[in-house]
Design a binder for these strands. Sequence first.
DNA 1: CTCCCGATAT
DNA 2: ATATCAGGAG
Length: 210
Amino acid sequence: MNKLNIHTVFSRFQAANPNPKTELRYGNHYQLLTAVILSAQATDKGVNKATGPLFKIIKTPQDLLNFGEENLMKAISTIGLYRSKGKHLMATAQILVDHYNGKVPRTREALEMLPGVGRKTANVVLNTAFGQPTMAVDTHIFRVSQRIGLAKGKTPLAIEQKLMKVIPEEFIMNAHHWLILHGRYTCTAQKPKCQECMIVDVCRYGAKNV
DNA sequence: CTCCCGATAT
DNA sequence: ATATCAGGAG
């Protein structure tokens, strides 16, 4: 039986991609926060397409307040759920200016109080901006974890907690990027590409798909 | 739980 | 035509 060997899985991810990073484009912490808020139920590619031009103008929350909601809505109208995201971005910018001197707070509690920021987004910012070993469980990680047998659970939080226990400490910092990239390009939702998967030999799901 | 919501892949 | 995409708020 090919039981999933977790150390093997992450060793291979590491060998193939020693320094994985987000595919969202950004120039500072505030732009990263903005991009992650925009990325809910949307592709990174689609977000980058809109933020490319936008981030030439918007580099701080004060910039966004000056820019205004109408202009923001137009700029992000190609992204799904753009109306609620636009509202959240305006409200978040106001809070950052009023309470955080225009900077992105570094604690989970403060981040999760921002409109449009839940646990997953907070985890991404904590990891990618501030170097903390968090596990942001998005749709890819939720699917991949269950499919390959890394972690089972009904909610993203349950998966997150199991992953934090199960993944060796040496891999925690990069694990969430490796898992996302694996889910996005190989272990896809429809028609996963098991033939070109680097962990197919230790994956139960893959065993029956090759 | 429902709603939000355009672009792209299948 | 339908499923999916770095979810979060009400």
